[in-house]
Design a protein around this nucleic acid. Sequence first.
DNA 1: TAGTATTTGTACGTATGTATA
DNA 2: TTATACATACGTACAAATACT
Lengths: 255, 255
Amino acid sequence: MHELKRSPFRRKLSDHIVEDIKRWIVVQGLKPGDRLPKERELIELYGCAKGTVREALKALEVEGLVTMRTGPTGGAYVAEPGANQAARALRNYLHFQKLDGHQIYELRKLVEVEVAAAAVGRLTEAHFRELEASIELCDHIGYERDGQRELRIAELNFHNLLADVCPNPLLQFMVHFINDLLRDLVDLKKTYRPGRIQFGEDNRYYHRRLLEAFRAEDESAVRRLMHEHMCNSEHHTTALEAEVTQSFLLGFDEE
Amino acid sequence: MHELKRSPFRRKLSDHIVEDIKRWIVVQGLKPGDRLPKERELIELYGCAKGTVREALKALEVEGLVTMRTGPTGGAYVAEPGANQAARALRNYLHFQKLDGHQIYELRKLVEVEVAAAAVGRLTEAHFRELEASIELCDHIGYERDGQRELRIAELNFHNLLADVCPNPLLQFMVHFINDLLRDLVDLKKTYRPGRIQFGEDNRYYHRRLLEAFRAEDESAVRRLMHEHMCNSEHHTTALEAEVTQSFLLGFDEE
DNA sequence: TAGTATTTGTACGTATGTATA
DNA sequence: TTATACATACGTACAAATACT
């Protein structure tokens, strides 16, 4: 007992390496793209085995702080953690909480309105064309019976386009996160329901009127329309996919 | 060429194992505490090497989905990822984005009001006592010159207490996340500013009036007060800690 | 208190795949 | 095309931690 080899509660060596590398990144101010010591050097530096170093690098890779490349000039490089990593972690957390569609919309009603308001005055003609194309795509898919998921993706794409011009990374992240959540919900309820048609029509109606309000740069109209749109969407969504929400939040690392 | 051994873009085997295990957790509805196949079994199942399985388990461990234990009855167990893991990932992401105090408050003004509204009617007498104690603690610390961080923690604790009774895990998470962000911001700006006194007084004023509104279960008053409180707080905070926000978000695994 | 079985954690050596030059 | 540098994967042996007797 009372061996103080490394620390009171002898932590795993790989975790020690992870912390060291994190420290390097912070104190040396390493930027994305900077190269880290290669496997061989870390092995010699810590006098440990290959597997140990690999475990440490794997941990950093999961956190999104480094990426690994093979071949010459390969190795570990500092990376900028993407939104997907944060989204994955948040989904992991929510998977074990009780979360239903109503609660998702409780937040969505807030952030979508805010993001839309922030987009007023920031949209270029190119953006308008994209938004129009999105609406037309929904129009087109709407007539098919099978493209459930495609339709949902196209509908949500309208909102993602708006979020992309939002200068607030927190709001932007939340909108994308929620929309990804809603996109994956449709997979669970494969059954085609007639209410889905009305839902699609309502969406197109609101998207068109929102586009008008954006063109007029009428922020109060945008806020009002988006709020209505969200309340309407909540009504349809909770009716369609209400109780199944609690599953499948576990992110399946799309692409 | 044209070898289709595993997939077009030959993914790493350990990632494949990670996905499989995640799938097991979802489709078999595994709960925290449930045991996963042990190392040896996974090795035989996938016909791979020990290091490969260990890499996969390490990844899951970092995501907080499993914990590893040694000895008999040891192995990999399903775990419930805490909010800290999601918060850490989100911080890692925001570390590389441009985020200022104003943008934090853009979201905070929304969620704090919503959380407060959700708390109406859910507060027990025990909660009221905790909230009162929180206010009194702020009162007490407010007179000391050094307890900058302690004061901030105590102030934010009032809001965290409210969030704890919020039944919506998404809103609850966001409030806690934002408050942790604000708590850590005070460390960067060590300089004591006279404006801080007025800030503290305002906070106590609003907390007291909020408590009254909660006791009266007057939701519209709660919403109005919390909104005012947030606008006031934003004014003080951005004045005090405006531009320094962008540094040191990288989470250092606090315990 | 000690011993033993079980299972992870670490070390080492080797072979293979893959991207750069 | 060939050589090179590096990650990726395999297999074995041993150390360390824990539960049970």
